[in-house]
Amino acid sequence: MNMDALVEELKVKLIEQLNLEDIKPEEINPSEPLFGDGLGLDSIDALELIVLLERDYGIKISDPKEGRKVFATLLTMAEYIRANSPAIS
């Protein structure tokens, strides 16, 4: 899967997993922060993303410091998945 396709897939999964009812995939800027500003996600969302990464991409994040970098933006998430997921060739 190429980077663009992965980013688009993540947008859809993010909306579904986090129940972002009023947001459409095209409204998510992959370079914008996921937490704080940007999408304004919180700590419960972070747990949801950890579950998503392990369940759908086979990646386990156990170090909080690592999580902070991985979940900075949708783009950093996609890059991390491409580099570490056995499910993404």
């Binding site: 997993q17 129940n19 419960i44 747990l47 949801e48 579950v51 392990e54 369940r55």
Partner: peptide
């Protein structure tokens, strides 16, 4: 479905 692993926090809460 997830065989008692990877539970979503929101539905539990």
């Amino acid at each position: 479905q997830n065989e008692e692993k990877l539970m979503n926090p929101s539905s539990f809460i």
